[in-house]
Nucleic acid binder design. Structure first.
Lengths: 115, 115
DNA sequence: CCTTTATTCAACCAGATGGTTGATAAACCA
DNA sequence: TGGTTTATCAACCATCTGGTTGAATAAAGG
């Protein structure tokens, strides 16, 4: 269970969130779907650039798009966000457990760190 | 509470994890500290490249370094990983609550979606 | 001293990325 | 039909990034 197949998806998702504009888009979409024009409005960059950012998020599986007449609202996909927290917690929790173990040893609970 | 000051730190941390080599380094460090040479061993790239990756992780606050004679072991910093899960969950959970609300409406619990 | 081990610095290169402008397509509205 | 809105595609440019090689630093061990 090495998660080799998931590596590409993690790459795309972390890369997508490694940009402040795309993170603000995610924050906005958490409050409901929006179109490209609505998303571009609070930014000082062109709509074409926002469209590219949304393509990055879509390719990473973080958002999906629907059809509503000539509009194409963008929706957030929380399942992909959950995949990221799962990966991070996997290593964060292991390390934090080591800290707790060390604290226990220093407190003299078992007094047998390792020969 | 806009997290403007945290934006740079999020940038650095997400960028750092947006690379499979650096993610493997984090995975390795979750099991204990290691030197540059030990970290470079399983990879097909030079130690200089690994050293650069560690600098990226260190600049992002994800790892720290200590001195042990001529060795400089690298340690994982779980607090920074926790910062990332906090950011992601902030928006993931809002969206998931919307799904639960929608399910409740569709089930006819309140029958008052919005005019 | 000289050598070994561990690591970084400097210069360089190929490719990816973020942004721009201009043209284009698709659906609506008059 | 023609015109507006919405969104994308194509070409281009400046910058960033990951990797390389080669030289340089620092601390032990002879």
């Amino acid at each position: 269970m090495h998660d080799d197949a998931n590596d590409d998806r993690l790459d795309l998702a972390f890369t997508a969130l490694a940009d402040p504009v795309r993170r603000r888009i995610v924050a906005r979409l958490s409050r409901g779907p929006a179109t490209v024009n609505e998303l571009a409005e609070p930014f000082a960059i062109t709509k074409q650039a926002i469209s590219k950012h949304i393509q990055v998020l879509e390719h990473a599986g973080l958002v999906t798009r629907t059809r509503d007449a000539q509009r194409r609202p963008v929706h957030l996909n929380p399942a992909r966000l959950e995949m990221l927290t799962a990966w991070i917690d996997r290593y964060r929790l292991v390390k934090e457990q080591q800290f707790r173990d060390l604290d226990a040893v220093l407190a003299g609970e078992s007094a047998d760190p390792k020969p």
